[in-house]
Simulated scan of single mutants.
Amino acid sequence: MRISVLFSGGKDSSISALLMEPYFEIELVTCNFGLLPTWELAAKTAKELQFPHRVLYLEGKILEKAYEKIMSEGFPRSAINYIHEKAIETLASDPEVKLIADGTRRDDRVPVLSISQIRSIEDRLGVQYLCPLKGYNRKTVSILVERYLRIEEGPSESTPKADYETELRELIRQRHGEGKIKELFPAHIQSHVISRKELP
Score class of each variant (00 low, 15 high):
169 R>Q: 08
42 A>L: 04
133 L>C: 13
64 E>L: 11
118 I>V: 15
44 K>P: 00
77 R>I: 09
116 S>Y: 00
100 I>R: 02
182 K>L: 15
179 G>Q: 07
148 Y>T: 08
60 G>W: 02
128 Q>N: 13
144 L>M: 14
59 E>I: 02
165 E>D: 13
160 P>V: 06
96 E>G: 12
139 K>I: 09
75 F>N: 03
140 T>W: 02
193 V>H: 01
131 C>M: 15
153 E>S: 11
13 S>M: 09
41 L>R: 07
30 T>V: 12
43 A>L: 02
171 L>I: 13
197 K>W: 01
61 K>R: 15
140 T>A: 12
77 R>P: 00
68 E>I: 00
155 P>M: 11
86 K>N: 12
140 T>M: 13
30 T>Q: 09
133 L>D: 11
1 M>T: 10
76 P>W: 14
28 L>R: 11
51 F>R: 04
108 D>K: 07
106 R>D: 00
60 G>H: 09
55 V>L: 02
36 L>D: 02
70 I>K: 04
127 V>D: 06
94 D>E: 13
172 I>Y: 14
141 V>R: 06
159 T>P: 00
165 E>R: 10
118 I>W: 05
33 F>A: 07
7 F>E: 11
178 E>C: 01
116 S>V: 00
18 L>T: 01
182 K>M: 09
160 P>Q: 07
101 A>F: 06
6 L>N: 05
96 E>F: 13
84 H>N: 10
10 G>M: 11
98 K>W: 06
189 I>A: 06
2 R>F: 09
56 L>F: 02
149 L>T: 01
57 Y>H: 04
90 T>P: 00
22 P>F: 08
51 F>L: 05
7 F>C: 11
57 Y>G: 00
137 N>A: 08
63 L>K: 12
25 E>W: 04
32 N>T: 08
175 R>E: 08
161 K>Q: 10
32 N>S: 12
79 A>T: 11
85 E>Q: 15
155 P>K: 11
81 N>A: 03
59 E>P: 05
46 A>S: 07
42 A>F: 03
62 I>R: 11
24 F>N: 12
36 L>H: 01
138 R>W: 14
1 M>E: 03
125 L>V: 10
108 D>T: 11
8 S>I: 04
76 P>C: 09
12 D>W: 02
167 E>S: 13
110 V>Q: 13
136 Y>L: 15
192 H>M: 13
94 D>V: 06
2 R>I: 02
149 L>R: 02
167 E>L: 14
8 S>F: 08
137 N>G: 03
112 V>I: 11
138 R>C: 14
115 I>Y: 10
37 P>S: 14
47 K>L: 08
131 C>H: 15
80 I>A: 01
45 T>F: 00
119 R>D: 02
178 E>W: 07
18 L>I: 12
8 S>Y: 07
